[in-house]
Design a protein around this nucleic acid. Structure first.
Lengths: 332, 332
DNA sequence: CATAGAAATGCACACGTTAACAATGCTATT
DNA sequence: AATAGCATTGTTAACGTGTGCATTTCTATG
């Protein structure tokens, strides 16, 4: 039913090979016939059958963008920026396939035949088996957002720890000594890194905080709200709270205002990520910017280059995170 | 390099035809040999080559999820919910390909060979050409979010107009008579529908507002902020503002608090969409819930059923929108 | 015992594309 | 004029899978 190169060949009075070569701009073909064939193809509205091409070329034209999960733990802004970044880079001739790793019962269908390359937006060490699997199958692979040690891969990660360090240090510089932390989802690497940065800064400045200042969350709005509610009940209420992402910070601010208190007058709040909405919160959120879109773009570019040249350094590249000072932290 | 059915055949001492049939659970095959072959396939770690299968079966195993754009106009929450909804439904044997329609230079590569089915999250009439193209190519097609008249397609849309009507009516019932609107992106169908619902409610209650109460936005945070800033400068400042989505509402609230005013004491604000963060704004946002995730899920289910059975009613199905009353509107 | 028919398997081709190799005609060099 | 070599095109096979039809073997029926 649909047009094939053989149909074109018949009409042009040449062999289908010649058509194939002409359409692929082979230098073997006489420029005139090439033009003629292209014209015919155009007029017949020809589109190549990618399955056939894939079969013989052993390429799928599929690129996978995998997240740890599409459920709790992955915020909307994170997903959005990642897709946008990757999508901006990949050429017209790749399909971008989006998927949560935890949606796979078996990785069976993930192989070189089905994916020309894979980008993993890794948030948790639970992805490890997937990453190792893909690496083992020799699928071109870029891992973003989380450092991977066990396997050699192209690896781009934002420097969460130093971001958290600088933010916490900033809180200290503003005169805060009672600084609590609302942590991210358990098991996520970023959770650990941000906590480490926080602890490091406190230690450096000789500040110690009670255990009750460590409250767990899971990166979503509700958990931020719940965690802050706990903190506000404390007899020795903190003067500042570092929320490990902006979503939780929004929830936390809510918990404060609900009690008739206000940010930053009664308590200071800081976040992490710098999502789109953070600048528009009331008060505008002091946070740490993580360049997710840039990271995704860089990752996609690297992957494409690797697919083309089959060559690249497999090492961890740290992306700079940046302290963004706004209005949610009071100077004491 | 990778295992094929012929390799299995050799090992099992049968023809590759038998292997193919066995793995596809054909009733033609002796149950015992079938089991034996399956065992061998498993031990050899066989995965079918989808390109080859696609070629002969004329199916791509690709499902497309297309947005009007991945840039301004599509909010993170919208993208997130849509992907989540669709992803929850599609079986393990489909690839979900995500893409912005405005990223295509030519629709060339969109055809039945490359897509078993397409879901269009349509926000603008600019998608019309794409929808007609896909429909013309006889690709199984579901259009979500925006009613389509020119072509017969499966079409699921939230009832934005009546949602906006009820919300506006609610504002009136709370005693507001000076109600402004911050509109959505020009050219988007939803912009029109929400405006219509707003106007209808005002008319019904015999309220007229000055032209200056219609301020244009484009569904993003900045535009909400800018629009509200304008409104606040007005000599006859409105007592309530209907923002055509939650993102703009957040931006609008920001503009209010920046001026030392507060919501809802000095001015009431309402939104539209009910994104995840809306309940956690301060104050919690009164808005209209649009069941995007459910819509996406329903759309995906419908599409899969159609692909299987080749049969379905092509008509518009309205999804109910729901007024969500929170704390951002004051009773006068 | 002959035979019809069912059950199980194999043969051969098709899907649409690319590419190694062969073939042809032409030009330039000796 | 013979030939080497280039430019251009065609022949043919290959990629891995599914399926119509033929073939073989076995069972049941008369």
């Amino acid at each position: 039913m649909s047009v094939t190169i053989k149909d074109i060949a018949k009409l042009a009075g040449v062999s289908h090979t010649t058509v194939s070569r002409a359409l692929n701009d082979s230098p073997l073909i006489n420029p005139e016939t090439k033009e003629r064939i292209k014209a015919i193809a155009g007029s017949m509205n020809y589109t190549p059958n990618y399955s056939a091409r894939s079969l013989v070329l052993d390429r799928s034209y599929n690129l996978g963008l995998f997240f740890t999960t599409l459920h709790t733990g992955t915020s909307a802004g994170f997903l959005y920026e990642a897709i946008k970044g990757v999508n901006d880079v990949i050429k017209d001739d790749y399909n971008l396939i989006v998927r949560g790793i935890d949606d796979y019962k078996s990785f069976h269908k993930v192989n070189r035949k089905n994916f020309d390359g894979i980008i993993v937006m890794s948030q948790s060490e639970s992805d490890q088996s997937f990453i190792e699997y893909a690496s083992d199958k020799e699928i071109p692979l870029v891992v973003l957002n989380r450092p991977v040690e066990s396997v050699q891969v192209m690896n781009f990660v934002p420097d969460d720890q130093s971001g958290a360090y600088r933010l916490t240090e900033y809180l200290v510089q503003q005169g805060h000594r009672h600084i609590a932390i609302i942590e991210g989802k358990k098991g996520f690497k970023s959770t650990q890194a941000r906590r480490d940065g926080y602890c490091e800064a406190l230690r450096k400045h000789g500040i110690s905080v009670p255990e009750t200042y460590f409250v767990s969350g899971n990166y979503d709005l509700e958990s931020g709200h719940a965690a802050m509610s706990k903190l506000l009940e404390l007899p020795d209420r903190p003067t500042a709270v570092f929320c490990c992402n902006d979503d939780m910070a929004l929830g936390a601010v809510k918990a404060v205002t609900e009690r008739g208190l206000s940010v930053p007058e009664d308590i200071s709040v800081a976040g992490f990520d710098d999502h789109l909405f953070s600048a528009f919160m009331s008060p505008a959120l002091t946070t740490v910017r993580r360049p997710i879109e840039e990271l995704s773009r860089a990752g996609a570019e690297k992957l494409l280059k690797f697919i083309e040249t089959k060559h690249s350094e497999k090492s961890v590249v740290l992306f700079h995170t940046e302290l963004v000072i706004r209005d949610s932290v009071k100077s004491l």
